[in-house]
Nucleic acid binder design. Structure first.
Lengths: 199, 199
DNA sequence: TGACTAAGCGGAACCGTGTTCCGTATCGTT
DNA sequence: AACGATACGGAACACGGTTCCGCTTAGTCA
């Protein structure tokens, strides 16, 4: 890990210099994009270029590839968690918010997917991350679902864990096969969640 | 595939020149050794060096890594199959023959292990290979078991498929962890097969 | 047997990645 | 403003895959 906290703690930003912090953020964002576009095996240089930093910088912040992947993972979980309430407040309707949120969640899953490979050998740190991810996101999703249900936009009674699990499974087989677009199916799933027009 | 036959056929050695054939054999043997020692991701150069040929030669015979791995796989199955009767004839006792044969079989399994990875994407050719391997080897093992049982060296009634499956499973978790030596356990398994001294 | 041809060989050279290292730029402080 | 610590960038190196081409040699034919 490049910063000093455990999975359960918040990022302490223990850094000294402002530019270092800026670069770290840029790197996390760039890596997330590149991972989505090219998988976790994307060339380091590509990530550095996208972030607008040198190669040395990336190695200073994240000595190993696993460090970077884990950091992105946590960053994405955080972003997802924080985006929930924000979307609820900003988007036109709870259902729209839910839709946007699910989109972020899918981004996250795609990134997460190669992660299992990148972390083989990394002892049991993987399970801890997974638990963290569930603890953090299920409540957020639940709140979005509740809001949409309260607004009468979707049928009530859907369980957040179940929905997230379903989305996760839809994203699982994703191997770059152009014939299989998980996002399309997830969209369908959401559509199916809609309350049937009150007959 | 570099030679032109299917899984079910014998190697046709359709080549024209003798040295080409020799090199192909040397390459198969060398690759098998290197795969056992360093896994299927071993550098091409290392295999070429071990076989005493140039890099170009390896690429001419086996254009892709999968080609080489498949060829080694089939070569090993063949070697295993042919070694059975030979060992039975040469070794002192059927049990010794069985022991030696199992040793070869383990070599094969270790090689085979990384194979699944190397063949992802290679359509369903993998299942065909697996079926071929079972068809070819189960009878050989069965004959060794029968001979040893007839000689009173092991308890009768052991099923070849079951034994092979068990050995396969013992070799499965093999990740280069020095604390886990499949061969040791397989030895134990064989020892357990021995007929208890007729009480 | 010797000349000839093309199959086959070796490995230098090239490319794309990961990784290291150090001179330079920048930040924050005094 | 000056200065030391910190961080930055990217050239340089290491390493493995892949290509390509001049040389060697097996096999043939007279």
């Amino acid at each position: 890990m490049s910063d000093g906290d455990q999975v359960t703690g918040r990022a302490p930003a223990r850094s000294k210099r402002s530019d270092a912090l800026r670069n770290q953020q840029a790197l996390l964002a760039a890596a997330a994009e590149v991972f989505v576009a090219s998988g976790v095996d994307a060339p380091i240089r590509e990530i550095a270029a996208r972030a607008g930093v040198g190669i040395g910088t990336i190695y200073r912040h994240f000595p190993t590839r696993a460090d970077l992947v884990v950091a992105v993972y946590r960053h994405q979980v955080e972003a997802c968690a924080e985006a929930g309430p924000a979307l609820l407040a900003d988007a036109g309707s709870p259902f729209t918010a839910l839709g946007r949120w699910v989109d972020l969640f899918v981004d996250f899953l795609v990134t997460k997917h190669g992660l299992a490979n990148a972390l083989r050998s990394d002892s049991g740190g993987f399970e801890a991350l997974h638990a963290y991810f569930l603890d953090r996101l299920v409540p957020v999703c639940a709140r979005l679902l509740d809001a949409a249900a309260d607004a009468g936009e979707i049928r009530p009674g859907t369980q957040a864990y179940e929905l997230m699990r379903g989305i996760g499974n839809l994203c699982a087989g994703h191997d770059g096969d152009p014939r299989y677009d998980p996002r399309r199916l997830v969209g369908l799933l959401l559509e199916g969640l809609r309350r049937p027009p009150s007959s």
